[in-house]
Simulated scan of single mutants.
Amino acid sequence: MVTAEIAVALPALVLVTAFSMWGVTAASVQVACTDAARSGARAAARGEALPAVEAMVVAALPAGAQVDVRRDAAISLVEVSVPVSPPGHTNVLPLTVQAEARAATEPGANATRS
């Protein structure tokens, strides 16, 4: 009788473990996105070239990340979006983890640096 109960419970346990690991992965990607966006916003606010800032942010993120870097005279903004695929070959859509960071643009930083 115990064997039948284990046979029913084991797939459920594997499924719960897999989706729990997906949650942990998503949380880890969220932390990476937030850190990369903050670093990028600070670099853009200092006046770094926007393509260099975008390259720096993309390098710190998992593959498939989308990065948008903008700067005006007042605010430097970095937006990051990364899809996190579910475990295995399921029909569940990937989670999209997003982060945004803003920093006050320093005076004179709006000019493009070489």
Rank of each mutant, 00 (worst) to 15 (best):
A109F: 02
T105A: 14
A45L: 05
T34W: 01
A12H: 02
A60K: 11
V29A: 09
L15W: 02
D35C: 06
V31C: 00
E79F: 05
N91Y: 10
W22E: 08
S81P: 05
V82L: 07
R102D: 07
V78L: 06
D35W: 00
A18F: 00
A101P: 05
T96W: 05
R42F: 06
P51K: 13
A52Q: 14
V31R: 04
R38L: 13
F19S: 07
E48Y: 01
A36G: 12
G40V: 01
M56C: 07
V97R: 03
V92K: 04
V24D: 02
A55D: 11
A43F: 03
D72L: 10
A7Y: 04
A74P: 06
T112I: 14
P62M: 13
V78S: 06
E48A: 15
V78E: 07
S114E: 14
V16W: 01
I75Y: 04
R71D: 08
Q66R: 12
V8L: 13
A101Y: 00
A101H: 02
S76N: 04
A49D: 12
P83N: 10
Q98K: 13
P107K: 12
V14M: 07
A12D: 04
A59S: 14
E106A: 12
V69T: 14
A74L: 11
A60H: 06
E48C: 03
P51V: 09
L10D: 03
A32P: 05
D72E: 13
M1I: 06
S81T: 15
G88Q: 03
A109Y: 03
S114D: 13
A109T: 07
N110I: 15
T34D: 11
E106M: 11
E79S: 15
A18K: 01
P107T: 09
A55W: 00
T112A: 12
G108H: 07
V29C: 05
E5G: 09
L15C: 06
C33G: 11
V82N: 05
M1D: 09
P51I: 09
A36M: 05
G64R: 13
A12T: 09
V8F: 08
Q30N: 09
A74V: 15
S81H: 06
R102C: 06
V58I: 14
L61V: 10
A104H: 11
L61G: 12
